[in-house]
């Protein structure tokens, strides 16, 4: 699903990559964890979302990634409403349009570094289609070069430090130019120097593909590096 200017979703701003309206989410029958009236994020924005542990950051990202299904409200990504999609469509959408970076343990232990990087494209045809035929390895290698991990491509992941592993995760998230990069506290396992370096690399890559970055953390230290900063507590009415 390549990005198209939206004419079919009347009233919404085509510049918005993320558009949340009246979203209510609860786990099972419990009280809502999230209740967000409105959240808009523009194309290419680097957004920092903070909140203490347990405030629902991961839940929000799960909803945006389409792994969790919301029943109330709408979550429009690139003009498509996740709430109206089937689970399968959401999986496909995530694979093709998003890069996801976890806090840690981002890599499949039994695949080489290169295979870990190309996994997102191997699993999603549309995403792979954005890379010229037969150049997947070449693209992966050039991204790895920029991230300073090119020499590890054939290694197994156990030979990498945590920082290197996170950079592999960035490479995988960015390969195939997805429009949205979602990062769930990806720097919490790194020390401050490495955090900043990591973020700068991430931003550098995202600028090339004009990807929008959603970054959540409980730690506001990195806030100044972002275009915009949102407190989850403030937008969440639950």
């Amino acid at each position: 699903m390549p990005m198209k200017p939206s004419h079919s979703n009347g009233g919404t701003d085509p510049k918005n990559v993320v558009e949340i309206r009246d979203l209510v989410f609860r786990y099972g029958q419990d009280i809502p964890v999230l209740d967000i009236q409105s959240l808009d994020i523009k194309k290419g924005e680097k957004v920092f979302i903070y909140g203490p542990s347990g405030s629902g950051k991961t839940t929000l990202l799960g909803l945006l990634a389409g792994v969790l299904a919301a029943k109330e409200g709408s979550i429009r990504l690139l003009g498509k409403d996740l709430v109206k999609m089937t689970a399968h469509e959401r999986d496909e959408f995530r694979g093709n349009h998003m890069g996801y970076i976890f806090q840690m343990f981002n890599l499949i232990p039994y695949l080489s570094v290169l295979d870990n990087i190309t996994l997102s494209c191997e699993l999603n045809r549309t995403r792979k289609g954005r890379i010229p035929n037969g150049e997947l390895k070449k693209s992966a290698t050039s991204i790895a070069q920029e991230l300073g991990i090119a020499e590890y491509l054939d290694k197994t992941i156990t030979q990498l430090s945590v920082g290197q592993q996170q950079r592999v995760a960035v490479a995988r998230a960015i390969l195939g130019s997805p429009e949205i990069i979602i990062a769930d506290e990806p720097t919490s396992a790194l020390d401050y120097d490495h955090r900043e370096k990591f973020l700068k690399l991430l931003f550098l890559e995202c600028r090339k593909t004009q990807a929008t970055v959603l970054f959540v953390s409980h730690d506001r230290q990195l806030e100044p590096l972002f275009d915009r900063c949102i407190s989850l507590k403030e937008i969440n009415r639950a």
Partner: peptide
């Protein structure tokens, strides 16, 4: 991780 890169439960 597989789910994050787009693998559905069916995969």
């Amino acid at each position: 991780i597989l789910r994050a890169v787009g693998a559905g439960p069916r995969k």
